[in-house]
């Protein structure tokens, strides 16, 4: 298992469990005010305002979707323009491989029929933008990821149901486990737990 690095369990985070979204939001504000930076929360529903409290922002996804849409649109029109005889290819090797254009005269319309070529380009715009949104979201979130140290916490079993979990990660510059536990207790949560990484990870 070992590849020369230490894979024994290490402290990963301290988590506190709350019963409502409002209690969590209140606690998150206090935690941020106490100076902790590497925070996260685990909730069954999206709690609005949490990322603002955590002073964490990310709008890369919008650009990913926009660029994917642009790519789909250009790809669609390029395909239609080129296959309708946009450029003649003299390379025989490409022709043998079926990569030559196939110009068709349909009712005397121009070979590059801009309006009639719109629907396929439009559908490809939407298709690629949707891929960008879904796969971009998963990629930025680091999913799929079946193993995560947080799953070692007992309270995480209800984080998808009716519990709201606040977490301060060990990467925080001010992290001192006993201090964090003490601080979390002062927020009056239902429970506080130390989370270790799993053996071998």
């Amino acid at each position: 298992m070992s590849h020369g690095r230490d894979t024994s369990p290490k402290p990963f985070a301290v988590v506190a469990e709350f019963g409502t979204a409002d209690a969590l939001l209140e606690a998150a504000k206090k935690t941020r005010a106490a100076g902790y930076r590497d925070m996260d929360a685990y909730t069954p529903i999206p709690v609005h305002g949490l990322t603002d409290v955590m002073e964490w922002h990310d709008d890369k996804l919008g650009w990913v979707v926009f660029l994917h849409g642009c790519a789909g649109f250009s790809l669609g029109y390029f395909l239609e323009w080129w296959t309708s005889g946009g450029i003649a290819i003299s390379n025989t090797a490409l022709q043998v491989n079926g990569l030559n254009p196939y110009p068709m005269n349909v009712g005397g319309k121009p070979l590059f029929s801009l309006p009639a070529f719109f629907p396929p380009a439009y559908e490809l715009t939407i298709l690629l933008a949707a891929f960008g949104a879904v796969f971009g979201m998963l990629a930025f979130n680091g999913l799929p990821k079946p193993h995560h140290p947080l799953f070692n916490a007992a309270c995480m079993g209800r984080a998808s149901s009716d519990r709201y979990i606040l977490c301060v990660e060990a990467t925080d510059p001010r992290y001192d486990e006993d201090e964090v536990v003490e601080f979390m207790r002062s927020l009056e949560p239902l429970s506080v737990e130390r989370v270790m990484t799993s053996e071998g990870y």
Binding site: Y42, L50, D58, L61, V134, S160
Partner: peptide, 22 residues
């Protein structure tokens, strides 16, 4: 491996609203 992280939810909602838009 969805764990409901606040950061994940943020991107998730962003993705949902954009999916709805397209």
């Amino acid at each position: 491996g969805w764990r409901g992280s606040a950061k994940h939810w943020h991107r998730y909602e962003h993705a949902s609203i954009m999916l709805a838009g397209i």
